[in-house]
Design a binder for these strands. Structure first.
Lengths: 175, 175
DNA sequence: TATTGTTATACTCTATAACTATA
DNA sequence: TATAGTTATAGAGTATAACAATA
């Protein structure tokens, strides 16, 4: 763990230190913000709601607890999350075939349609984000970011395949 | 603003859609988290506190309001922020030469020393983040991310040179 | 006895609006 | 009259702990 740069470079307004971590942190923040806004404007959804719909599209019919475990959302907050989406008619609680305590949460038809429109908004953000790049540069960036992401997935207990912003922070060690 | 991909790719756990926006969002979130933890462990500082120290190192002696404007932190919250750092002895409120209502906030010597250690922790995160990359890849990634960052700075009212996590979100249009 | 969904309570963070002392 | 700093109050979001129904 060598320090790749001197420890205390001057920081002038308008400049950022040439650090991958700083840039990722900043750009990730802004892109998340853009994504949240786009989803709000296009389909009146929050990032977390989008995340649950995405998960349901791929793995529906599971219990709130199972879904919440994947998304790192505790059970008590899953209640309101599912409540809201159910109120919008995008999700439904059906009886669980194996366990009468649990619900089988799944997408409705309206939910699928809304999810498709949400993806369109997300890809518009993608296009906007990559606007400053040549196609070849975008491909290269995708490759490099993918390398970092897969390395992380192999290393620690990262949440698989889930969009950040809807994933809860890991519990702080709180020394 | 053409959609570069079909609107609704399947999302399997363990996979992420090949999107720069998704990857930036996720990696930015995780790197910010890592950075926050490293700062907490090394110097018991939060990202926002680190941000203020960084700003003071470059532009100290300014009023809380001026500092808060740069960091997008409203005046009332600047109070607690400066209070905490002053309580740690890292920052001091001195009399403002031009305006007796305002304070001139500046780094103490201990603040400078702590900032240097904070930068060391930050660069350790940098090294850790770039671990999976070859040196040439890291350079290339730095270049591509820098391209996105500068394009954003020119475009909208992004905060100049300030680390995210310590910058407040822009006010939502709230349609 | 353990678990699913739910609720109740407290706590943290933030926003809004006042207040004081200076300008 | 406006501004810098501060404080007070209320609101949103979250965590912790309890609860009823079922396993």
């Amino acid at each position: 763990m060598t320090t790749p740069r001197p420890p205390h470079p001057p920081v002038r307004p308008g400049e950022l230190p040439p650090s991958v971590a700083f840039l990722l942190s900043r750009l990730g923040y802004e892109v998340s913000r853009d994504m949240g806004r786009a989803l709000h404007d296009a389909v009146d959804l929050e990032l977390r709601q989008f995340g649950l719909l995405r998960l349901l599209a791929d793995a529906g019919g599971r219990s709130q607890r199972a879904l919440g475990e994947t998304l790192r959302i505790p059970p008590n907050r899953m209640v309101a999350l599912v409540d809201d989406l159910e109120g919008k008619g995008l999700v439904e609680r059906r009886i669980h075939p194996d366990d009468r305590r649990a619900y089988a949460v799944s997408l409705t038809e309206a939910g699928s349609a809304t999810l498709a429109r949400a993806y369109q908004a997300a890809f518009a953000v993608e296009a906007d984000t990559c606007g400053p790049l040549e196609p070849a540069e975008r491909t290269r960036l995708l490759d490099l970011l993918g390398k970092l992401a897969t390395a992380r997935m192999e290393r620690d207990d990262a949440v698989p395949g889930v969009h950040p912003g809807l994933v809860e922070p890991e519990p702080e060690p709180e020394s």
